[in-house]
Write a protein that binds this DNA or RNA. Structure first.
Length: 423
RNA sequence: GUGGGUGUAGCUCAGUGGUAGAGCACUGGACUGUGGCUCCGGUUGUCGCGGGUUCGAUCCCCGUCACUCACCCCA
């Protein structure tokens, strides 16, 4: 084979896309119930948008961007959805026509990581963004939306983690506190964490290295140094989550790797299916500084993204769609084949999926094929039937067969399928 | 980006220094026009790719690519 898909980028074949479509439509409906509408933004944006919004010290921007140049413009494939959505929001001046904007999106994202189960170079996210509400009630509602979506799909054993990293003031103060605590223990930290100590010390808090974990276990919690406004917001979030009945766990070490977060952070993990190390199904947080930082109005915002590939892995067979009954037409001979084409169209006109096997072959092999396709009915049509103005209809599940007048077949089969679907 | 594991038929996998097998799938027949069961037959491979050692390599060695797991990162 000469060509293969680019590393970390995968084809989705029909068996898979059926599962995807089911989850996607469930997401659209779920987000719609909360008042979210779909936004579609370009996959390619100015490189600078991500450097500025996602943050130049984030790993995503530092090492994982697919960059390109066109007529002197530096462009990039989007590594996440939030910056593009925020840009679109500002370009359209949405804040001038509505106080609060709720958008959701579905789409491909690109990060040049080492591929792994549940982690690909082209992957799909579904996400929500909420502009114009400072929270904390809407923070709780958004977390509830995310967790509720997973539950609706049938996922159990979900772990909802929350934290607050405060506003810029709190974070700067905490950063100093943390560096002061970690520096004496520097030699006990992993090599990676030692580097982080200089550029992004908060990230050490969620290191998986046991060395780092031991040191971090004794570190001061950011929740203890929240300023009054941050504290009030945090308490309000917890009260609202309790009122909504959302189960959660406070994890002071939850940090997340995008630079723009303020205050509320959250993540939903699952042990279901075959997720392996990529057990974060979705996550997000508040990013009150982004819109202003991009030259727009000083408006608060919060959002999340969930990984479609991971969600599908976690769901396993649970994402398999229910098959609708359909008809298979098995014509014997050339004359019957033409009649079969006509009958198939009659069925389709009534909204019934139908297919004709025009390849010829024995009745045995045609029935075998009908069986393999899991058709509900197989219509057998040969010279004998044509001459008598009837067809043989085989109910493949019931192993029964009856003769029906040719003129009535389509309507009768539709009635049969409707009856079954109603059960 | 770093480290480990694995690459043999469409799928799941066995196998041996003398150029390949099973099950499933597909297909034909037993049953001149009746499936999913049974029985019998048939098709399918550059043994991931390139190089080396050897009389000879799918097997040993080196490289490379892909997949996979972990780190890292995050969805």
């Amino acid at each position: 084979m000469q060509f293969r898909a680019v590393k970390g980028m995968n084809d989705l074949l029909p068996e898979e896309t059926e599962r995807w479509q089911r989850v996607e439509s469930a997401f659209r409906r779920h987000a719609g119930l909360y008042g979210y509408s779909e936004v579609r933004t370009p996959i390619v944006e100015a490189l600078e948008l991500f450097v500025h919004a996602t943050g130049e010290t984030s790993e995503v921007v530092e090492k994982q961007m697919f960059e390109m140049e066109r007529s002197g413009e530096r462009l990039a494939l989007r590594p996440e959805g939030t910056p593009g959505s925020a840009r679109a929001f500002l370009n359209a001046s949405r804040h001038a026509r509505e106080p609060v904007t709720r958008w959701y999106y579905l789409g491909q994202m690109f990060r040049a990581e080492q591929p792994q189960r549940g982690r690909y170079r082209q992957f799909n996210q579904a996400g929500c963004e909420l502009y114009g509400d400072p929270g904390p009630l809407c923070d709780a509602e958004l977390i509830g939306l995310l967790a509720g979506f997973f539950q609706e799909l049938g996922l159990r054993d979900l772990d909802v983690l929350i934290n607050s990293i405060g506003g810029p003031g709190t974070r700067a103060r905490y950063r100093e506190t943390l560096v002061a605590y970690l520096t004496p223990h520097k030699d006990a930290l992993s090599e990676h964490a030692q580097r982080r100590l200089l550029d992004n010390p908060l990230r050490i808090l969620d290191s998986k290295s046991t060395k780092d974990r031991e040191v971090v276990a004794g570190a001061p919690s950011i929740l203890d140094v929240l300023d009054d406004a941050d504290r009030e917001h945090w308490d309000g979030l917890r009260r609202a989550l309790d009122a909504l009945g959302v189960q959660y766990r406070v994890v002071p070490g939850l940090v997340r790797g995008l630079d723009y977060y303020t205050r509320t952070l959250f993540e939903v993990q699952s042990n279901a299916g075959e997720l392996g190390a990529q057990n974060t199904l979705g996550g997000g947080g508040r990013y009150d500084g982004m819109l202003k930082g991009m030259g727009g109005p000083d408006l608060p915002a919060i959002g999340f993204a969930l990984g479609m590939e991971r969600l599908l892995l976690a769901l396993g067979d649970a994402a398999a769609p229910v098959k609708e009954g359909h008809c298979f037409i098995a014509p014997l001979g050339d004359r019957a084949a033409l009649e079969g084409l006509k009958l198939a169209n009659e069925l389709r006109a009534l909204g019934v999926r139908a297919e004709v096997d025009g390849r010829g072959g024995s009745l045995k092999s045609l029935l075998r094929r009908a069986s393999g396709l899991e058709a509900r009915y197989c219509v057998v049509l040969g010279d004998n039937e044509l001459d008598r103005g009837i067809v043989q209809v085989k109910n493949l599940a019931a192993h029964s067969q009856e003769e029906l007048p040719r003129a009535e077949v389509a309507a009768r089969l539709r009635a049969g399928l409707t009856r079954e679907a109603g059960r």
